[in-house]
Amino acid sequence: MTHNKLFKYIQHFVPPFLPTIFIISCILYLSLNSFSNIPDTPLFHIPYFDKIIHFCMYLGLTLVFYFDWTRYSIITKKQKSTKYTWILWLLPILFGGTMEIAQKYLTNTRSCDFFD
């Protein structure tokens, strides 16, 4: 399957923003569940390891959101406006802040950290 055929397949069969919704669901699951039964390993003792994980999760969310946004503008044949690109960065930041607040108030095993 060539690159162009693969893109057309994805464009036709995957509803717009479904990958973004999937990534958001994964982040919700990982952020609000307790993983206290996982055995302690040396990997968890890397300095700022949790910050690296948060950065990767939200960068991944931003990239998938950008991909879906571009794909949506191609499907609907609408010009992708560059004046709204700030939304691509603002929404994951707001979602991350909301997740930190949710961890504080909706879970007993997770805590809220401004720098996450």
Score class of each variant (00 low, 15 high):
Phe22Gly: 12
Tyr9Pro: 06
Ile52Leu: 08
Pro15Arg: 10
Ser111Asn: 05
Leu59Gln: 13
Lys80Val: 09
Thr107Leu: 01
Phe55Ala: 14
Thr109Asp: 00
Thr82Leu: 08
Asp113Ala: 06
Ile53Asp: 11
Leu106Trp: 05
Thr41Glu: 10
Ser81Ala: 03
Ser81Pro: 03
Ser111Ile: 05
Gly60Tyr: 06
Gln11Phe: 05
Thr62Ala: 14
Tyr29Ser: 07
Cys56Thr: 12
Tyr29His: 08
Pro15Thr: 09
Asn4Met: 14
Phe65Trp: 09
Cys112Ala: 04
Thr70Trp: 11
Leu6Ala: 00
Cys56Ala: 09
Met99Ser: 00
Phe7Trp: 12
His3Ile: 05
Phe7Ser: 13
Asp116Pro: 04
Met57Lys: 08
Asn4Gly: 12
Thr2His: 07
Tyr29Trp: 11
Leu91Ser: 12
Ile74Glu: 11
Leu6Pro: 00
Gly96Glu: 03
Thr82Ala: 04
Leu59Lys: 10
Arg110Cys: 01
Phe17Pro: 02
Leu63Tyr: 15
Ser81Thr: 04
Gln79Phe: 13
Ser111Arg: 07
Pro15Ala: 08
Thr107Trp: 01
Lys51Trp: 09
Leu61Phe: 07
Phe115Tyr: 06
Ile23Val: 10
Phe55Gln: 08
Thr82Phe: 03
Pro15Glu: 04
Ser25Thr: 05
Phe13Asn: 05
Tyr48Cys: 13
Phe65Asn: 12
Ile27Glu: 03
Gly60Pro: 06
Lys5His: 12
Asp50Gly: 08
Gly96Met: 07
Ser25His: 03
Val14Trp: 07
Ile101Arg: 04
Phe65Lys: 09
Phe67Glu: 09
Lys80Cys: 10
Phe114Thr: 12
Leu91Val: 07
Asp113Met: 08
Lys104Asn: 07
